[in-house]
């Protein structure tokens, strides 16, 4: 790292050599140390979980939670995986999140096309509606949804959860995407109209491709949010075969069979997919959070 002349030249000695200056700037190292300590506090719990998830119960009993594992003991994870049929839970979560993300984006596109580009009459009120829909706590919807889905024979099915979250996520998507589409370049729309494209063709051939990056962000958000949802899936997915990952792990918490190592094993296999998505989507996410901040 090359150090160019810095404005903070308090020590005359700092001019001797950049290397010396770096060592003599206590503030600099103090700040770095504080940031590292904070990082350890935030990431530490995850590391402790990872370490104990691969310990044998005997190792844990003898050495406690803070020692490094004596060997890689994967039985805890494997046992837990088999006992709760974790593969099935992963699949339930995946298929639900994926379907919601796709349908939610499509629904957001249709709404935002009418509101942002079409500027239909009363669009302000529609936007207020979607904003309020965004704010609603799920508790105020849950009982009627539970009741209706029982009447409709959709209770305890992934389909009910998919339908509900598609609508809830698209309320946010509509709100965000409408403000993006309100500034959509009119020339492109006019050009499409000159070429004789109808509104339907213009939407899919012009508007959607041009807004691709925003749609990717929405897709990512919807996927991760749905994956992480707990409250409604907890109410709706009661049978073992239908549970999603957070529900399966959440309801087992406090179970008599969950000893120290099994609990950390269960936490670890709950963390791993999240970290995988985080790494996969990291760029989209940071860009997306920035996009959300502007609107």
């Amino acid at each position: 790292m090359t150090v160019t002349a810095r404005p903070t030249v308090e020590h005359p000695a700092a001019q001797e050599s950049p290397e010396a200056a770096r060592h003599r700037d206590p503030v600099r190292w103090f700040v770095l140390a504080a940031l590292v300590v904070l990082l350890l506090l935030l990431v530490g719990p995850l590391l402790v979980i990872a370490v104990n998830a691969v310990k044998s119960p005997a190792d844990y009993a003898a050495n406690g939670p803070l020692s490094l594992p004596g060997g890689l003991h994967l039985d805890g994870i494997v046992d837990f995986w088999n006992r709760v049929d974790f593969g099935q839970k992963l699949w339930n979560s995946f298929i639900t999140s994926l379907t919601v993300a796709v349908l939610g984006v499509v629904l957001s596109i249709l709404n935002a096309y009418a509101l942002g580009i079409g500027r239909v009459r009363g669009r302000v009120w529609f936007l207020v509606f979607f904003l309020v829909a965004n704010l609603l706590p799920q508790e105020v919807l849950v009982y009627p949804l539970y009741y209706i889905s029982k009447e409709a024979g959709l209770y305890d099915s992934l389909l009910a959860v998919i339908i509900i979250f598609t609508v809830i996520q698209s309320a946010f998507g509509t709100y965000l995407l409408t403000s993006v589409y309100a500034e959509f370049p009119r020339e492109l729309l006019d050009a499409a109209a000159v070429d004789g494209a109808g509104k339907w063709r213009t939407l899919w051939r012009v508007v959607v491709p041009v807004s691709g990056p925003t749609l990717a962000v929405l897709f990512t958000f919807f996927f991760i949010w749905t994956w992480n949802e707990f409250f409604l899936p907890l109410v709706f997915l009661v049978s073992n075969d239908n549970q999603t990952v957070p529900v399966a792990l959440g309801v087992l918490q406090g179970d008599r069979m969950m000893d120290a190592t099994t609990t950390s094993a269960s936490a670890l296999i709950g963390i791993l997919p999240a970290i995988l998505f985080f790494l996969l989507f990291q760029r989209t996410l940071t860009r997306g959070i920035a996009a959300g901040a502007i609107k």
Binding site: Y113, A114, I117, I148, S170
Partner: peptide, 24 residues
């Protein structure tokens, strides 16, 4: 002619948000 694009979204919102909210 854009209003027609709102129909699926509004029907879905009616079923999942408006009706349950009013019921609660």
């Amino acid at each position: 002619g854009y209003a027609v694009y709102l129909i699926p979204g509004m029907l879905a919102s009616l079923a999942v948000i408006v009706v349950p909210l009013v019921m609660t």
